[in-house]
Nucleic acid binder design. Structure first.
Lengths: 234, 234
DNA sequence: AAATTTAGTGTCAAAGTAACACTTAAAATG
DNA sequence: CATTTTAAGTGTTACTTTGACACTAAATTT
């Protein structure tokens, strides 16, 4: 079998933008880089693609390494390939964005990486082009969540409508009328009301809901419309 | 400067899915592969990323090589990285999809590549994973064009509403009511009516329109809604 | 002059959207 | 135990958007 002998080869990496929601703010999980160059700087979790791996497998492996979680929402964001993006050697990176239930992470926590959650408006300076990756991931999250019910991935199994409400307000950084929001949510028919209430957040307590998994999986690929005047996203 | 000496390197390529519209059908431009493996098979136009190039620069260069065109609509589609996608040697490929005015191409034509336009429903078997790339590009075109006015990139400077109408019907493979379609189009305020008519397509002739470039550039990033019941795209 | 072909336009009912305010449940307070 | 506090939960209305639908107008061909 012939090879393309005259072409130069490059390193291939993946980096993960990991989103979580603690009930107050949208956050992303960052680590302190453990090796040179720029050891000690804040960075996305990433790693090199191994010889037998696809990009997606590499991203899953890296995600599992850091969070202990399997089977989380994972979507390719963009391939970054500027020749000088890593000063050490030409390295292309395929960025993946992932949505996890932050509480599951807390349970699985095995902190070999000095990982920390950062609110989106308090992201520290990041290595290489990771700042750009985060920015693009944010945009994509906004864009996609305006039409597809992906933000449920950030919530636990049981959640309340007020929780969802703050989540959407946080992602879009706007206020949403709770009556219209609630009506829209209910009318998707994705939610199944539970009998128990969540009592931590308020005196009255709010009913828990669960996702109807079957309908949810179908709805992931259809167009809902969660955001009024989606106007100028991305 | 330290290097990541233990990691394996891979080849990096870009491939272009080039869409055009001849007034009848949506087509893509394919070439006959000029080198092994699979020399002579139909393939997307592609090439290796050079040491000083970003992905986007590589895609522009390759596009220019084949079509002679500069400054065309170009958007990253997806990074393909399965270990065995190229049997010769591990090669990752970043696919770009591009929209060109097919008539400009005809003028610039310099056929060193045995390039041919193929209607979307008559795509031949393609090398490697190029068939998958084309499929994803189609999906993305549908998805994006449902909300953003990108299909104008496929038309010449002056175009008629009936032309636009067939274009949209072709992309979505549905019939669109021309009254509603026309109303929607006009109400975007992106179109400027010209005084001349196009007379080739019909006896009565249809007025030409041009894009209001300023409004168009703004509108590329906003949400319009060209397709009734976008229902289940992608 | 008549026929053919495609461009271009208007109405109306239904659905969806956004704006808006009060009631209710439960705990905390005095 | 009565009152206060806090956040949950719910309905109405005007407006806009959508989709279904059919006729007239312009120009060429016969």
């Amino acid at each position: 079998m012939r090879h393309y002998s005259k072409q130069t080869r490059v390193l291939a990496a993946v980096d993960c933008i990991i989103f979580g929601f603690d009930g107050e703010d949208i956050k992303i999980l960052l680590i302190q880089r453990g090796f040179e160059p720029q050891k000690g700087s804040w960075s996305l979790m990433g790693g090199f693609v191994q010889p037998e791996e696809s990009f997606e497998e590499a991203a899953s492996r890296i995600l599992k390494q850091l969070t202990g979680l399997d089977g989380v929402y994972l979507e390719q964001l963009y391939a970054f390939g500027n020749p000088d993006r890593d000063p050490a050697e030409r390295t292309i990176s395929v960025a993946y964005f992932t949505l996890i239930d932050i509480h599951l992470y807390e349970k699985q926590l095995s902190d070999d990486y000095h990982a920390e959650w950062f609110s989106l408006n308090k992201i520290p300076k990041l290595v290489f082009d990771h700042g750009l990756m985060v920015e693009m991931a944010r945009e994509k999250l906004k864009y996609k969540a305006a039409f597809h019910p992906i933000l449920f991935e950030l919530l636990p199994d049981k959640f309340t409508i007020p929780q969802l409400h703050s989540l959407y307000e946080g992602v879009y950084n706007i206020e949403l009328d709770k009556r219209n929001f609630s009506r829209k949510l209910i009318s998707t028919n994705l939610l199944v009301k539970q009998k128990e209430k969540e009592k931590a957040r308020s005196k009255k307590g709010a009913f828990y809901y669960k996702l109807d998994k079957r309908k949810y999986n179908a709805a992931l690929n259809s167009f809902l419309n969660f955001i009024p005047n989606p106007g100028n996203l991305k």
